[in-house]
């Protein structure tokens, strides 16, 4: 049973008047993650939008301890925080990394891998807006096929790397995907993660109005379309027990999925797939890649 909206605590850890863009889905995810963790957390943040949304010294728009760190160093920094807590006998506090896709898929991958191999008791969250938003939308290892960025002006030629499988091969104690458009599900996943010792990973799909170029009010709609088109797969893995999420279950059958176009055409970053004329071939390629992702995920983890 998913948590009812009414049961989610009212206390806010994301404070109003912060520096996030209007409509930023990262803030929705942060709000509910922290409601689940209830403040007993130290959050490590590498260079990314989440470092900027905090706003300027001497104020910060979040009511939790935050240790900002270098772009590639989250896994290591969190390891140090955890070690200090252990040395001081305050081991119960959750140490959480909140890193972008650049800080996770690319520059921070080594530190993440090291921390997980050491079985560090921490929760690593990758909020994935599929691009380097903070520096003005350059491609990352998470940028999807044919998305336009300021380093792939005519669309990226390679699909994103399958980070979830890389992480899964570290055999974390807990692993899940989530989506800011499903905050109740997200809340539950953070609640579960809080109770589990060892390395934990939550990968959150975060539409970004700035970088994806869609009308700000459409963030939730796009997040849901990602699931309904099969583009984003919701799942959870406790130890080696894999479970397809209830939101994604029915989209395992490709015939039940909404056409991927519904997802793509709302976003300016895919405009070249529709202008000057529709590029059926490339859209088909994206669709095929989605199926490939389903196949390889299920083959590997079930």
């Amino acid at each position: 049973m998913m948590v009812a909206t009414k049961e989610i605590p009212l206390k806010e850890y994301v404070l109003k008047g912060n520096a996030a863009c209007a409509g930023c889905q990262d803030m929705v995810a942060l709000r509910h993650a922290h409601k689940a963790l209830e403040g007993d957390v130290i959050q490590v943040v590498p260079a990314c939008c989440t470092s900027v949304v905090q706003s300027l010294w001497p104020k910060v728009g979040m009511n939790i301890p935050i240790l900002n760190t270098a772009f590639m160093a989250s896994g290591a920094t969190a390891s140090g925080v955890k070690a200090a807590l252990r040395a001081k006998g305050k081991d119960d506090t959750t140490v959480m990394v909140w890193a972008g896709d650049g800080g996770t898929f690319d520059i921070g991958l080594q530190a993440l891998s090291g921390a997980f191999e050491r079985r560090t008791d921490m929760l690593y969250v990758c909020y994935n807006n599929q691009v380097y938003s903070n520096t003005g939308t350059q491609r990352s290892g998470a940028t999807p096929l044919y998305a336009q960025t300021t380093t792939t002006w005519f669309g990226k030629r390679e699909p994103e790397k399958l980070l979830d499988l890389i992480v899964a091969m570290h055999e974390p104690a807990y692993q899940a995907t989530a989506n800011a458009a499903y905050p109740r599900d997200l809340f539950d996943k953070f609640k579960r993660a809080k109770e589990i010792k060892g390395p934990k990973f939550i990968h959150i799909f975060i539409p970004c109005p700035q970088a994806w170029n869609y009308p700000v009010e459409k963030g939730v709609e796009i997040g849901k379309l990602a699931v309904e088109t099969g583009y984003w797969i919701m799942w959870e893995r406790i130890g080696d027990k894999f479970e397809l999420g209830r939101h994604s279950k029915r989209f395992q059958d490709p015939s039940k999925r909404k056409p991927i176009e519904d997802f793509l055409k709302l976003q300016g970053r895919f405009s070249r797939l529709f202008k000057p004329e529709k590029d059926e071939e490339k859209i088909k390629e994206i669709e095929d890649y989605i199926q490939h992702r389903w196949d390889i995920l299920l083959k590997t983890l079930t």
């Binding site: 760190t69 896994g75 290591a76 920094t77 390891s79 140090g80 200090a84 530190a111």
Partner: peptide
């Protein structure tokens, strides 16, 4: 990572 782990630890008072 060694120095950033020290940074994390020292920031947490160790």
């Amino acid at each position: 990572s060694a120095m950033f782990a020290c940074i994390g630890a020292s920031s947490t008072g160790a």
